[in-house]
Amino acid sequence: MASGNSISAARADALIQARGLRFAYEADRWVVDDVSLDLKRGALAALIGANGSGKSTLIRLLAGLRSASAGEVLFSGQPLKGIPRKRLARSLAYVPQINPMIFPFTAMEVVLTGRSPYTPRFRFENRLDVEQALMALAAVGAAHLAPRPVTELSGGERQLVAVARALAQEPECLILDEPAAALDLKHRAALIRILRQLRDRQGMTALMVTHDLQLLDPAFDRVFAIHRGSLLAEGSPGQVLRGEVLSRVYEDPQVRARKLEGRTFVWSGT
């Protein structure tokens, strides 16, 4: 496993850089408080932290969905704010946490919207776009869902469709907000496998918020842990997934981590 600990050298090939990010929904209650981090090109990274620690807000800032109160985000060395929305959508895809659907769009229609950054405003998607969308669905093992209305799908299936839509954007970087939450054991493992394949074959970068710490070691390259809006630890899964670090991240002295057969297992309690 390539370890990324030469931090000063990493600057050059960082795809997303955050510098002193701060964000507050209400005045002076910082949800994200002075976060600086580098997400290396081609890295599969995880963002962990307790409920309400500001994970979702942080990745929204990184994805350009909110603008920070202070600090800035650089994407490929350019300020995120200065990149036109449509161009950004071709390089960076975001998979939201929950995807409530009111209208019974088909899964295909949903995935096809991932092609909209490439199609002109007044044109429908062409055959090539449709093929791309089908491939994206097939990549997450959900090709059979294409004609189904999303309102009839289970939470996990809907999550797969959302990931497929993001893949249809052909992004350089995927940002996912708890994509594994609604997935069962098998699909969780499959999702991680897909992310790793995309990294290995195309050098795709991915940052994923997750509560499922068993997924991280050895699949991920880097783990960021935040605590009350601030970055508390960062490093390889082996470096972050340790009892003494996680106890502080989750404010739970009972967190334990144990290495077994090359994987790190984490639990809390007796």
Partner: peptide, 23 residues
């Protein structure tokens, strides 16, 4: 280059009906 690894679902995961039948 097609961004999506073709047959990513086919290797071990093999959902019974999913791969190799793109609609």
């Amino acid at each position: 280059s097609p961004q999506v690894p073709e047959g990513a679902g086919s290797s071990q995961q093999s959902t019974p009906s999913s791969p190799r039948r793109p609609g």
